[in-house]
Amino acid sequence: MLFSKRNNQKEIEIFPYDNTLPDRLRKQIYHLLVDVYQIETGHGYNTSSNALYRLNQPMLFAEVRQYICAEHGLLDFSDAPGCGSDPSNSIQSCIMFLLDCKESDWVVDMIELLFKFAVDHRLAGLKTIETLNMRFRENGVGLEFVEDQFIKIDSTLLHMEAIKPALLLMHSAQFAGPLDEYLEAHGQYRDGDNKAAITSAAKAFESTMKTICQANGWSTGKGTAAALIQTLFDNEFLPSYYQTQLTSLRATLDGLPTVRNNNTGHGQGATIVNTPDYLTQYALNLAGANITILIKIYNESQK
């Protein structure tokens, strides 16, 4: 690793994503896309992708451009803030959008779509995604590409200890439902819908418990978080030598539904209730930690 990067403290701790993508990061992602899609510019500036040609998917960049324009109400990319023109060549158009568009969320949308396609079609492997995420970290941008989408991370330590282990453990057919809900929660948080994010995080936690109960043939009662937690304790899901910690653990497990019920589970009345980012981060981290310990215990019980 170059000295300049070893000496960059942003590698140690990332900053919250604030709808800003540094110019340096945009150019680094440009070079990564050129490598992944084997983009070349021939005579007459006719830019093409050798990788897409071999996949018989020459219209991918045009489809991505059209999708983003439709979703964000643009006639073409020249309507986007910071983009003064929209070349007819769709690859050139997307590259200019990546480098120039001032609406960073829209740029992240495009990066996400292009790397999701690359992963799904084996143009990008684990090493490429590691490089992509490293670029975000070294520029201090709190986004990480996980399970085909970007999620917001506000603390490197909490992300590595609470969120990422939960995502990895849920990545199986048995926990596909909780995984979908947990990813949805992170997507809603990234989009600024904090109330929905907390609700989805709580659903993922509850779905994890329900999946474990059903796999063991235990009653799920009314299906509420309280009923599911009670079932886990009644059936001694936790090892007996944890008895001294049961009270504290139960309080932790009860914590997430409490956050959801107090902040999003009921009508807000005449006054708009704003759910702050820090509470949403807490809910996502708490859900991740709870899901991680539950699935780890379940997996251990199946050996």
Rank of each mutant, 00 (worst) to 15 (best):
M1S: 14
F3L: 11
N7W: 05
K10A: 11
I12G: 01
E13G: 02
F15P: 00
P16A: 14
P16L: 08
D18F: 05
L25D: 11
R26T: 03
R26I: 00
H31F: 08
H31L: 14
H31M: 12
V36N: 10
G44D: 13
Y45F: 14
T47C: 12
S48Q: 12
S49V: 12
Y53Q: 14
R54H: 11
L55C: 05
L55T: 03
N56I: 07
Q57R: 14
P58Q: 09
L60F: 08
L60S: 04
E63S: 15
E63H: 13
R65T: 06
R65F: 00
R65G: 04
C69T: 03
C69L: 03
A70W: 09
G73C: 07
D76H: 09
F77R: 09
D79K: 12
A80K: 04
D86G: 05
P87L: 06
I91A: 08
S93A: 15
I95K: 12
I95G: 08
M96A: 01
F97H: 09
L99S: 03
K102N: 13
S104R: 01
D105P: 06
V107N: 01
E112W: 01
F117M: 08
R122V: 05
R122W: 02
A124Y: 03
A124W: 03
L126Q: 15
K127P: 01
T128E: 06
T131E: 15
L132Y: 00
R135W: 01
F136K: 01
R137H: 04
E138Q: 05
E138F: 02
G140R: 04
L143P: 07
E147P: 00
Q149I: 00
I153H: 01
S155K: 03
S155I: 04
T156W: 05
H159M: 08
A162Q: 10
I163Y: 06
K164E: 00
P165S: 06
P165W: 01
P165G: 10
A166N: 02
L167W: 07
L167N: 10
L168P: 00
L169I: 15
A173H: 06
A173C: 02
D180G: 03
L183G: 03
E184K: 09
E184H: 10
E184C: 02
A185G: 07
D191F: 11
G192C: 09
N194W: 05
A196H: 07
A196I: 07
A196G: 13
T199Q: 11
A202K: 13
A202Y: 03
A202D: 12
K203D: 04
M209E: 01
K210G: 09
C213S: 11
Q214I: 15
Q214T: 15
A215Q: 12
N216F: 10
S219Y: 02
T220Q: 10
G221Y: 09
T224M: 08
T224H: 09
A226S: 15
A227K: 04
L228Y: 04
T231S: 15
D234G: 06
N235K: 14
F237W: 14
Y242V: 14
Q245H: 11
L246A: 12
T247H: 11
G255V: 00
L256V: 01
V259M: 10
R260C: 07
N263D: 04
T264V: 12
G267K: 06
G267T: 09
G267Q: 00
I272Y: 13
I272E: 15
V273A: 10
V273D: 08
P276K: 11
D277W: 02
D277H: 13
Y282H: 13
A283C: 12
L286C: 08
G288T: 03
I291L: 05
T292H: 08
N299I: 01
